[in-house]
Amino acid sequence: MSQALDVIARVRNGNRAGNPWRAPGLIIPLAFVLLLLAAAAMPQWFTALAPDAVDTDAILLPPGPGHWFGADQLGRDVFTRVIYGTSQSLGIGIGATLIGCAGGVLLGTAAGLAPPVLQRLLVRLIDILLAFPEILLALLIIAVLGRGPTNTLLAVGLSSIAGYARLVRSQVLRVWQSGYVEHAVSLGESTPAIIARHVVPNAVRPLVVLATIGVGNAVLSASALSFIGLGVVPPAAEWGALLADGRNFLDTAPWISFLPATVVAISVIAITILGRRLQLLLSQGGEP
């Protein structure tokens, strides 16, 4: 899917004249992501109901006025739960990505600049971690730490470190060869200072864009963990937990799972497209 999106983005971008920063392919996902952020920050602006409010008169009510997304088996409003779940899901997504990036920078820099023996060891470690599917690593971490929102965040974050680390390492190696690092060396700056002031800041620039895409992935991973009952603890309205809640009602009340699933899908697609767009624009030097 990611490749396909990439192609679409390239073709569209190539065909468009005018300011690439105003392209609908950028504006629409951006608007959606801003909407998500608003829902995460101020859920009460979007709905007057409480996410855990049981209403025995509304049990399994189909979507309609009053309950846009219908109601679940306890009569809780599914739309409200999706809105309140945004902060959990997005929070876990962003938090996990930050953990992944921070860990990736540390590990990647070390793997790029450490003494040769340690370097080789760290590169092999990254390779081993990359060989495991992220979700498997996350499951392992959950098994050790136990479930809960903080642990889900840690699990998803830690399991994504290897990917970031490999990117950072390649960037660090590139930057290390660059002219300005040579200059800094010849000016007599200490190695730690060069790493902190020159290497890391220049190496992480591509990371910013990829982290945006990573948020989408992290949201998906966290939802997957919650879906299999290893993520957040009920009655938290995390998106994956909403899907899991509805799976026993797929034939009688499909909206409990289907509508939150649609929101998850659209959100992840929007975040990913946004990341790709930014990546393309920045690589083309598309500064406004």
Binding site: L167, F227, I228
Partner: peptide
């Protein structure tokens, strides 16, 4: 750098036991 380096491709819904 191709972005697909960065993604781990394996992902999926695990069956719930």
């Amino acid at each position: 750098m191709s972005p697909s380096d960065f993604h781990t491709p394996h992902r999926g819904w695990l069956p719930h036991h």
